[in-house]
Simulated assay, not measured.
Amino acid sequence: MKLNNIDMKNLGLTEEFIQESKKYKALFIGRVSSQSKNLYKVITEKSEIVAEISGKYHYNVKGISEYPAVGDFVMIDRTNNSQGNGIIHHILSRKSAFARKMAGTKEDIQMVATNIDTVFICMSLNDDYNLRRLERYLSIAWDSGATPVIVLTKSDLCNEIEARLNEISSIAIGVAVHVTTSVSDEGYHSLKSYLSSGKTVAFIGSSGVGKSTLINCLIGQKILDTNGLRNDDKGRHTTTRRELIMLPNLGVVIDTPGMRELGIISADLTTSFSDINQLAFDCKFNDCTHQHEPNCAVQKAIKDGFLSVERLESYWKLKKETKYQGLNSKMIEKEKTNEMLSSMGGMKNFRNFRKSIKEQSRDKKR
């Protein structure tokens, strides 16, 4: 991407970043646009340059999340590469960060994108459609500090759009939902309202849902490569790394590789499961686990058909994942054993409760 004389405010540079940058003398502000191994591309006021972190920076880093990530504003020693690679000395404070836990130990953290205003959670209405995964994305997105927006793709391959929109509205409380198709411009125009000078929009979702296609349509030209996608959503996504793209007077967008697995580092379950939290106020006990306690408003909502068993189970699962963060394997096993011993009867009662709900549902269908 060849850039010259950059409008840094359109790039997302705010007065807060400018004031923080004044602590670092003889350095320039830049924004990380991509990363490849130990090298970064950084957009400065003069051009986009190749950079690496300083030896001191590398020595002081305590975790993976402290390395520069796409979207970070950094302090760098030059604005062009005429004298070699730039050297990154500092990261300015992140106003938001979308991160995920990678498979492995608790240190395996991947910063997906930082300093973002809006997260487009992209999900296909075809085989990629998965409400439980969407709940996970929403929980992390709300926690990131950015505003989540759901973008549904491939509507031309779905014959039950209205039913799926109803399902999504029941779990995506307070979240805007947009429907698009890859065979026409229908739906894309509504997404343009999120693009404006100084704003950053990140595209998140599984492989093959059409994130790059969406970006190309919004930009009005083919900047990102796309491959033909199969109807089973197993098409190969050409994006292999995160990339920040600046748009003239419309801020920036960040494209990300597909993510089918999204391990939780932290999550805002209060917002993403606001329906369950609201119901919990009417439970008899303040510490109700919604499993076997009498006068549980959450169980009553399930019995009355206002809440699905699957959503409650998803809530429990995500709550446990956030609870285990920061614990080593032995601590996690001990915690699980204690939970199993203390709630054995409760889990048995819940299984019986779920079984009765399913039996009632079968009886109604008859």
Rank of each mutant, 00 (worst) to 15 (best):
E20K: 00
I18K: 01
L312R: 01
G235P: 05
A146W: 00
V298I: 08
C158M: 00
C122T: 12
R31Q: 05
I302N: 01
C217P: 10
C217H: 15
L244W: 05
D225N: 15
D233T: 09
A176L: 09
I223R: 13
I116C: 03
D363C: 15
G198M: 05
I140Q: 02
K365N: 10
L125Y: 02
K358R: 12
S193T: 12
L27W: 07
H237K: 09
S196Y: 14
Y59A: 14
S33K: 07
Q19M: 01
N166E: 14
N38Q: 09
T256C: 08
S139W: 03
T153I: 07
P294N: 02
R230Q: 13
D108A: 14
I223S: 13
T200F: 04
I121Y: 08
S197G: 09
G174F: 12
E333P: 00
K23I: 09
G86H: 02
K95Q: 01
K284R: 11
K37C: 07
F285S: 05
R354H: 08
Y324A: 15
I53V: 08
M259I: 10
E66C: 01
K192E: 06
A280V: 13
L165Q: 08
C288V: 02
Y137D: 06
T322E: 00
E333M: 06
F353I: 00
V74T: 00
I6C: 07
T181E: 11
S272Y: 01
Q110F: 11
K25A: 10
Q221L: 13
I121K: 08
T118Q: 10
D143K: 10
L279H: 15
D128Y: 03
G208W: 03
E333F: 04
R236P: 08
Q35H: 03
L279M: 15
T181Y: 05
K234V: 10
G198A: 10
V74D: 00
D268H: 11
L341W: 13
I161D: 04
S184C: 11
A202I: 01
S196E: 14
L327D: 15
F98H: 06
R31D: 02
Q19S: 07
A69Q: 04
F120C: 03
R311Y: 03
L13S: 00
E333S: 09
E186C: 12
L195G: 07
L327M: 14
K25L: 07
G174L: 12
I140D: 03
T153E: 06
I64M: 15
F353Y: 02
F98G: 05
A103C: 10
V70K: 01
K154C: 01
L341T: 12
I29Q: 00
V309Q: 07
T239I: 04
N85A: 06
E339W: 13
I87F: 02
Q83A: 15
I18Q: 01
G210C: 15
L318V: 08
E339A: 13
N349A: 13
R362H: 12
R132F: 10
D143T: 04
V70A: 06
A202Q: 04
D7V: 02
P248D: 09
S361R: 14
K284D: 03
F285V: 03
Y24R: 02
I168D: 08
N352S: 09
D225M: 14
H178F: 06
R362M: 15
E335R: 11
K9D: 02
